[in-house]
Design a binder for these strands. Structure first.
Length: 790
DNA sequence: GTTAGCAGCGTTTTT
DNA sequence: CGCTGCTAAC
């Protein structure tokens, strides 16, 4: 990559339109302050829907247009590709083509990649390093775990991946792991982490976390490099600052130069990524980190009606330790937040489907809302299935955001592995993925032989394979096919070098000659056709790039589906994916304790988890412009088992004055709590009920049942903080003291409650696995909520 | 070495 | 319930 392409060598004037100041039009006084405070640190606390992105982009336009900075002197980082794209588009709208010259607008990871490509050799990498996604990462870790002779059943590699990611989020190198963490993964995590890092270096590869960590190291160890960027990147902006983790924070502290021209934007109430290491503390601490910072609060909400805003504010006020904002709006009253309970998840989906259609017609005196203006926001991805099923049956067009992503599909990843291997023949991970795809008669033994061969000769697997064939270490049918494969890859590789422009044709050749397309054609499973479609689409996507290499680079970071069509579709996505978006109508299904707030979150991080869940509720509600509809079901199928559900405690936090209960009033009286209570019933009753209406006798049964009493107790119990450790790691301290009734977690059986104690053995009733006797040291205290009812 | 059939498992959220 | 990973037979 050529430095002169995007960094200034001389200070010539930039071609930026010199209009009066249209980018300042329509800003309110606070926004304007945030835009015009150009020098020194700025903290923009922007509540939901207060025009944060508008202010941020206006600020960039202001910097450019006043000549304070040129396009390539502004560093603007976001978290998601979506946000980065959005920012680019909006800057483009204000300053036109100048946005093309802004290389430093992107996600933390994308910007880091750019930096790292340039200075790779400073951390022992080649600038052509590959970026592993979580899938690759897991495969690699699995190999290491196996090599270490660890029983993967008891210690899943996935867990190790989680531990390592956690450390990377906190910017901890293998030699810096605090003693308290040393017991993780049976005490072997630290060594495996070190081994993993060595292996990555060998492979000339990095994972997502490394992108940041390597940059941090480069900055720390190379003052000259850092100084250079301080000179170049004159203004720094960070979006969604409340989501930064420790590594990102350090990265930022380093890259912001002595001029301290840094503007961070965020909302502590929308911090929903604690589980992946985000530290709300970063935003709470900003004024201490950058003394003298200008603090701007954006509190006027332009998005939602007063009822929606009031409901959201009431819910979020249950959290402690907020910076505190008072959102207000000049909009007219509008609809109250609507609340409805359903018998089960299927009925909830059915009702939502009908409601979407009704809204399109214009129901209850409301102006019509087209399906394209409707979003269904769920807590967990698996909730989406019920809606998809329903929408398919009634023929309601929908789209899923953040579902299984295009570039994560097996066939696409396989094809990509072929391309990777052709471009970089020493990409061992790619080689391993596809040597035997399609089947070439090469099993574990053959692959092992190749590996031995490669290691002995100090070469990559592809070369190792050639040697193995020549020396007949791999013979028979597999050997013959391997020979063909190796020769083909080498041929394609030459072709890629000789005719770099013919990359689209080459891609087709690779997929055809390797037999990969044929493999799917021969398969007659229902989704084979779709996979072939995807392959075609992949090849088509290639046309947008001028080389295979460029394409691979793009794909490794931008892993989302950008296919947008103009059709009117209902949007289905998780609450996490919805942050930053807005819709005229929003449905919030599944507000049931255990699902939302998620039981796991409560078990693992206690009150902190509950507060994060509450912020999620706040994010959900504040996505709505005109109508927000909260719903819950009394019964839900979890792992194929029917479970009774208690309405979410967040429902009780909705202020009655701003809520309209839609459930037929004959069903129950009183507040929402009662609403949900009547809906919660045993699976037996579920079979009895033929309609929405339950008779009194049935309800009496519900209230009398032991399950119901347990539910009430559970709801009444306060959330406790988890004890030692994070509840997931086996922690010596937590071993000793169990009491009957304690909530515990076991690697093997999940969560449960202690029934009896005999010496070092516990009788535990597990939520899912049932009653088991377990040795105390295999179990760890996991205080939190009670068991599932009934 | 491959494939089919079975058991057991697990589901939060993502760059 | 749907998936993955393992085992037993081809």
């Amino acid at each position: 990559m050529d430095a002169s392409a995007d960094l200034p060598l001389s200070r010539r004037a930039m071609a930026v339109p010199q209009a009066a100041a249209p980018w300042l039009d329509g800003l309110n006084p606070e926004q304007r302050r945030a835009v015009e405070a150009l020098d020194g640190p700025v903290l923009m606390l922007a509540g939901a829907g207060t025009g944060k992105t508008k202010a941020l982009t206006a600020r960039i336009a202001h910097l450019l247009t006043t000549g304070r900075a040129r396009p390539n002197e502004i560093l603007a980082v976001t978290f998601t590709n979506k946000a980065a794209r959005e920012m680019r588009t909006r800057i483009g709208r204000m300053v036109g083509e100048a946005v093309e010259g802004m290389p430093w607008v992107g996600t933390f990871h994308a910007v880091s990649t750019r930096l790292l490509r340039r200075h790779a050799e400073l951390v022992g990498l080649k600038s052509s390093f590959t970026i592993l996604d979580s899938d690759d990462q897991l495969r690699l870790l699995r190999q290491l775990v196996q090599a270490a002779g660890i029983d993967e059943k008891r210690w899943p590699a996935r867990q190790l991946a989680g531990v390592i990611d956690g450390w990377k989020n906190r910017a901890l190198d293998p030699d810096r792991i605090p003693a308290a963490d040393a017991s993780a993964y049976d005490g072997k995590a630290v060594d495996l982490y070190a081994a993993y890092q060595r292996r990555l270096l060998d492979l000339n590869a990095v994972d997502f976390g490394d992108l940041l960590l390597h940059c941090i190291r480069i900055f720390r160890e190379n003052a000259d490099v850092l100084a250079q960027y301080h000179r170049w990147l004159r203004y720094v902006l960070v979006d969604e600052y409340q989501d930064t983790n420790v590594a990102q924070y350090l990265w930022l502290r380093l890259i912001v130069g002595p001029s301290r021209n840094v503007c961070v934007v965020g909302d502590d109430d929308q911090s929903i990524y604690g589980w992946r290491g985000a530290e709300v503390g970063n935003i709470l601490r900003f004024e201490q980190d950058f003394p003298g910072a200008v603090v701007v609060r954006l509190e006027q909400n332009y998005r939602s009606t007063p009822h929606i805003l009031a409901a959201a504010s009431a819910v979020i006020s249950g959290n402690k330790g907020r910076l505190g904002k008072t959102l207000w709006t000049a909009l007219n009253e509008g609809e109250k937040v609507r609340l409805i309970g359903h018998w089960d998840g299927d009925e909830e989906a059915r009702w939502v489907g009908e409601e979407v259609e009704a809204m399109a017609r214009g129901t209850r005196g409301m102006d019509p809302i087209r399906p394209g203006g409707v979003a269904i926001l769920v807590r967990a991805a698996h909730q989406m299935r019920a809606f998809e099923d329903r929408f398919l049956t009634i023929g309601l067009p929908y789209r899923v955001i953040g579902g299984p992503r295009f570039y994560e599909r097996q066939e696409v990843r396989d094809a990509m592995a072929y391309f990777r291997l052709v471009i970089s023949p020493d990409d061992d991970l790619a080689f391993e993925r596809i040597v035997n795809t399609p089947k070439r008669g090469l099993g574990d033994k053959a692959v092992q032989a190749i590996q031995v061969c490669a290691r002995r000769n100090g070469v990559g697997l592809l070369d190792g394979a050639r040697i193995a064939v020549e020396s007949r270490l791999v013979g028979g049918r597999g050997g013959a096919e391997l020979k063909v494969f190796v020769e083909a890859v080498e041929r394609w590789h030459r072709q890629a070098i000789e005719e770099p422009d013919a990359h689209v044709g080459l891609a087709e050749t690779i997929l055809d000659e390797s037999g990969y397309t044929a493999m799917w054609k021969a398969e007659r499973s229902p989704d084979a056709a779709g996979r072939l479609e995807n392959l075609k689409e992949l090849v088509k996507a290639l046309e947008g790039f001028d080389s295979l290499q460029g394409f691979l680079e793009h794909v490794s970071l931008v892993m989302d589906n950008a296919t947008e069509d103009g059709e009117e579709k209902v949007t289905l996505m998780t609450l996490h994916a919805a942050k930053g978006l807005e819709f005229p109508a929003v449905f919030l299904p599944g507000w049931e304790d255990g699902l939302f707030p998620s039981q796991r979150s409560l078990d693992e991080v206690g009150l902190k988890g509950l507060e994060e869940e509450r912020r999620l509720a706040y994010v959900g509600l504040t996505r709505a412009e005109r109508v927000a509809t909260v719903s819950f079901a009394g019964n839900r199928r979890v792992h194929g088992q029917w479970q009774s559900q208690l309405p979410s405690r967040f429902i009780d936090e909705l202020p009655p004055a701003h809520v309209e209960v839609l459930t037929p009033p004959g069903l129950y009286g009183g507040g929402y709590g009662a609403a949900g209570m009547a809906m919660s019933a045993s699976p037996v009753m579920q079979a009895q009920a033929s309609s929405d209406i339950m008779d009194r006798a049935a309800r009496a049964d519900v209230y009398a049942s032991p399950g119901w009493r347990r539910l009430q107790e559970r709801a009444a119990r306060p959330v406790r903080e988890p004890q030692e450790g994070r509840g997931l790691t086996i922690d010596a301290v937590a071993l000793s003291s169990f009491a009957v009734g304690d909530r515990v977690f076991s690697q093997k059986f999940g969560y449960g409650r202690v029934q009896a104690i005999e010496g070092d053995k516990l009788d535990v009733l597990f939520d899912k696995a049932g009653a088991k006797k377990v040795v105390a040291r295999f179990v760890v205290a996991a205080p939190g909520q009670g068991e599932m009812p009934f």
